[in-house]
Amino acid sequence: MAIDPAEVLRIARLARLKVDPDEARRLAKDLDRIVGHIDSLRAVELPEGSEALTCFGRDVHRADEPGTCLPREDALRNAPMQDGDFFLVPKIVDKEEA
């Protein structure tokens, strides 16, 4: 799989990362070499029906018991923009009527 600047821009959009064209060219070069290395995995022979590893451990749950919440000031304290009640963000346009 070769990675070119257009592919970098596609992934960057998915990852919500602003990347300028120069950066995209550099990143394409780096990523292409890295992907070239990791592509070596395709040749690894595995036993039939190999399962993927997901997580160590098994069956961990908690009981349905309410705990304590953060005071609102603490919840909001780190926010770049807030009004004492809500977190504030620029207007959301992506789900409005086209």
Partner: peptide
């Protein structure tokens, strides 16, 4: 309580008070 934390599940509490 919520799915992955202990915050209570309630309708109509003051905003941003059922959080952790």
């Amino acid at each position: 309580s919520k799915m992955f934390c202990g915050c209570p599940v309630k309708f109509g509490a003051p905003v941003n008070t059922l959080v952790c």
